[in-house]
Structure formats: C-alpha cells, structure tokens
C-alpha cells in the first residue's frame, strides 16, 4: 500500500509542473495586460505603462517570472492580487467554501438521481424506462451549461412563469448571516435570523441542478453499464440460486461490486464540477472561486489567475488520489493483496 501511495505521488510531480506552466502562460497569452485594463478608456502613456508594469515585476524576462512563481509556490506564496491588494491564497480560501457548498450539493443531487436511475435501467434493460433514461442522459451529458442555466431561470424564476426560486447570490439581502463555517446552509442555521436557512436553500436549488446535470448523466450511464456487466456475473447467478429477493440480489450483491466502479466515477467528477462551477457561478452570481476566476481573467489579474488555476488543479489531483485509495479500501481484492 505504501509503495502504491509513493508511486501515485511520484506521478503527481510532473503533472503539477505541467499545470504551473499552463497556468502561467495561459493568462499571458490573452491580449491586453493588467495596466491597460486598469486604465480603461482613458488610456495610459507608454512611459507610465512601462513604469507601472515594472513595479508589478512584469518587465523581467518570462523565464524569471516563471521561476519566481515556482519559488513562491514552494514557499506557499502565490503573490498578491493587484485588483484587491490581498494575497491570492487568502482571496481563494475566502471564496472556496461557497464553491464547495455548491459542488457538494450538485454531486449529491447527481448521485441521488443518477445512481438509482442507472440501476433501474440496467435491471430493466431494453425497457421504455431504459431507453428514455439513456436518451435523457445523453442530452444531459451534452447540455450547454450556460443555455441550460438560462432556460431554468426563465422557467422557474421569471415573474411571468413559475416565479419559484431566486436567481442570484447565496442568500437574500434581507438577511445578515455571520460567516462562521463559510457554508451558507450551516451558517444560516447557526444564525438567529428566521427564514435565513430557507432562503439559503432556495438560492441553492437552481445552481445545484445546473451544475449537477452533467455529472448526473455520467453517473447514470456508468452505473448502468457497470451494473449490466455485473448482473451477468456468475456470483449474481449464485445469489439467485440462493433464493434471495431481487432487492438483495441487485441492491447488495450486484451493487456492492458496481460501487467499486461508480465511486471512482463519482470521484472523477470533481474536475467536471469545478470546471462547471466557473460557468454556473457566473450565471447565478455565486460568489465562489469560479466567478472569482472569471472576474480575475477579465481584469488580467495575472497572479490571481495563475494562482487560482494551480490551486484548483491541485485540488482535483488530490481528490483523484483520494479516489484511488477509496478504490483500494472498498475493493477487498486490492485491500488484501499484501496478505
């Protein structure tokens, strides 16, 4: 197991270096620079431009800038965002809970619907339910998030239609909730404000659906195919030969084996979720890291963007590593390999 961990960690280093390089060069490839964007319409004289760029350290050769970026990472310093004058790391972690809250709700929503739907589709293979579900999930899988978000807003939130859910932010402006955990659902419960929790939950509904749609489609499809394969295994036939109920055969014997695959699939959705969060947060003005990244990119906030990308990528890599270990834990054949 230790060897397994070390190999995985060893593989992370080159991946991580690649990420830093991409993060560093991506933002510098965009036209315009921070000073220009700060100056806006008024413009700025070439001398003043050069002077300001020099104070930010952008006059140095690129390799030197990249090198100091790497050195900074080693020291846990991602630089200072020049739009907010705050350390990038701090900026990130202030917003991170909002994104985690949204992503967690989305993945729970996706698993809660995708998992049972995939199981039923596999058991009733070839049925109308199966075909419908596979059709829906193919649609969900290729759903353009932006369009889907706007459609839901029009349907559920516009005053002319259902007018059910709020469309922006995490909680109604009527409430003032102290930040304790950073998770609005929990903070609103801890606060004394009446109705704060309800408002926070209502604000979560649409973003959760929008962000959860693609993972839900993926989970449903993967659960179905994993179950289909497992339902044909000899040990499922044995379970039937024992006279067990269909619930035990499918829900215990087959599902336990399918979960090995499905947990991996769910874990791998973290990347999809964080990518989707960028769009979803923008649509719903959700104050998380996704929205922050978009804002930082439009301000050409070099440090914020490169730091943010590196942090997000690190989180995805860490979670994938965790999934690998989970896989080992849930699968006895790997767990007991040493014995």
């Amino acid at each position: 197991m230790i060897r397994f961990i070390l190999t995985k960690l060893g593989l992370l280093i080159p991946t991580f270096l690649g990420v830093t390089l991409v993060a560093f060069s991506f933002i510098r490839m965009l036209p315009g620079d921070p000073v220009e964007l700060l100056a806006g319409e008024r413009g700025v004289s070439p001398e003043r431009h050069a002077e300001l760029m020099a104070t930010l350290g952008f006059d140095k050769p690129l390799w030197e800038q990249y090198f100091s970026f790497l050195v900074g990472i080693l020291h846990g310093d991602l630089g200072t965002s020049f739009s907010s004058k705050q350390p990038v790391l701090e900026e990130f972690f202030v917003r991170f809970p909002a994104t985690i809250e949204l992503a967690t709700c989305a993945i729970i929503f996706a698993a809660l619907i995708g998992l049972p739907a995939g199981i039923v589709a596999a058991v009733k293979r070839g049925s109308a339910f199966d075909h419908t579900l596979m059709g829906i999930s193919l649609t969900g899988y290729s759903m353009p998030i932006f369009w889907w978000g706007l459609l839901l807003i029009i349907l559920f939130s516009s005053p002319d239609m259902l007018n059910l859910t709020p469309v922006s932010g995490r909680i109604s402006a009527l409430f003032w909730v102290d930040t304790q955990t950073g998770f609005m659902l929990i903070d609103s419960l801890l606060s004394d404000e009446k109705g704060a929790f309800k408002s926070a939950a209502a604000h979560l509904v649409l973003p959760t659906i929008v962000l959860g749609t693609i993972p839900m489609a993926i989970i449903a499809r993967q659960t179905r195919s994993a179950m289909l394969e497992i339902l044909g295994e000899d040990y499922v036939r044995t379970a039937k030969a024992k006279g067990l109920s269909p619930f035990r055969i499918v829900g215990i014997h087959a599902l336990r084996n399918a979960l090995i695959t499905v947990i991996t699939v769910i874990g791998l959705q973290v990347g999809v979720l964080l990518a989707g969060a960028i769009l979803t947060e923008t649509i719903f003005s959700w104050p998380g890291i996704g929205k922050w990244m978009i804002d930082s990119i439009s301000r050409r906030d070099y440090f914020a963007v490169q730091g943010g990308i590196v942090l997000i990528a690190s989180i995805v890599m860490l979670v994938n590593l965790l999934v690998d270990f989970m896989y080992g834990l849930i699968n006895p054949r790997i767990l007991h390999r040493r014995s």
Binding site: D234, Y235, T238, K240, I260, P332
Partner: peptide, 19 residues
C-alpha cells in the same frame, strides 16, 4: 430455490461474490 433445491456450479472461483 436455495432451500429445497439447490445447485453447485462449474466455476468455484467466480461463483462466490468477491466483495
């Protein structure tokens, strides 16, 4: 099935649930 009539299969390695 499994009580009054039961059946043993050809492949012992794959007929038991690995989990």
């Amino acid at each position: 099935i499994g009580k009054d009539i039961s059946m043993i299969f050809q492949e012992p390695m794959t007929s038991l649930n690995p989990c």
